[in-house]
Amino acid sequence: MVDTPLVLPLGEDAMLVRFGATLSQDANLAALRFTRRLDARPITGVVEVVPNLVSVLLRYDRHQIGFQRLAGEVGLLLTARMDETDLAGREHRVQVSFGGETGPDLDEVAERLSLSVEAFVAAHNASRLRVLATGFAPGFVYCGFHPEALHVPRRREVRPHIPAGSVLFAAGQTAIAATDIPTGWHVIGRTQLRNFDPLREPPTLIEAGDGIVFEAER
């Protein structure tokens, strides 16, 4: 069940529409559904729409629309009866080299779950995941949700640097880093996929709502 969306001002020219205080399947789907509705029915004056895990940020031109009017337009869009946009996006098969130097935390993660490395990789790759959101860093992809039996918390220590292509695991999700970043997630492998290229148009290949199937590199 999704909480009643909160419509909040963010600075002088932005609005946050939040569908939950914590990450859940329902809240994430509601944020994605609202984003698709905005794509289908653009609001005059809105210059940027940025979906997140449980919220959607709208940046607007104050010369074209004010906060109160925009809040009214958003309210109408949230309550309007519309044909539900298909939330299933494209499917991406992502080849991963698990473990070794490219996945230094794989053994520890498998041990914490009382699984062999082989059993963990098989369980990790068993389900088609959904891209919950992109962001945090350019091209960074959050994928979920894994079953509760595969949940582990993030690491206590942050690694100051991991390379682009690192495949990360924590809190029921798998993430793909598209650039070199620090992280507190467990690094379980690496992929040749690069989801961010500033010279490419569009610069990212994967969008929220897309499907992800992870496969062990052979």
Rank of each mutant, 00 (worst) to 15 (best):
R37V: 05
T22L: 11
G100Q: 05
T35K: 02
R36Y: 08
R33F: 11
H63S: 15
D61F: 08
D83I: 12
R59P: 00
H63E: 14
V47E: 09
R112D: 04
R37G: 05
V17I: 10
G66D: 15
I65D: 03
P51R: 05
P42G: 06
E73Y: 01
T85I: 14
R41G: 07
D13Q: 06
L57I: 12
L70E: 01
P42Y: 00
F19N: 09
L23Y: 12
D83R: 12
A21T: 13
A30M: 15
L38D: 11
E84A: 14
L29N: 15
I65R: 02
S116A: 02
P104T: 07
R69N: 02
R93P: 01
V47R: 11
T44Y: 01
S114A: 11
V46M: 03
L16E: 00
D61R: 09
F120I: 04
L106G: 05
P51C: 06
R59E: 03
V74L: 02
T79M: 05
A119S: 11
D86I: 07
R112C: 02
L87W: 11
L76K: 04
L76S: 05
E84L: 12
V94T: 04
L106Y: 03
L76N: 01
V96T: 13
A40N: 09
H63R: 15
T102Q: 09
L16C: 01
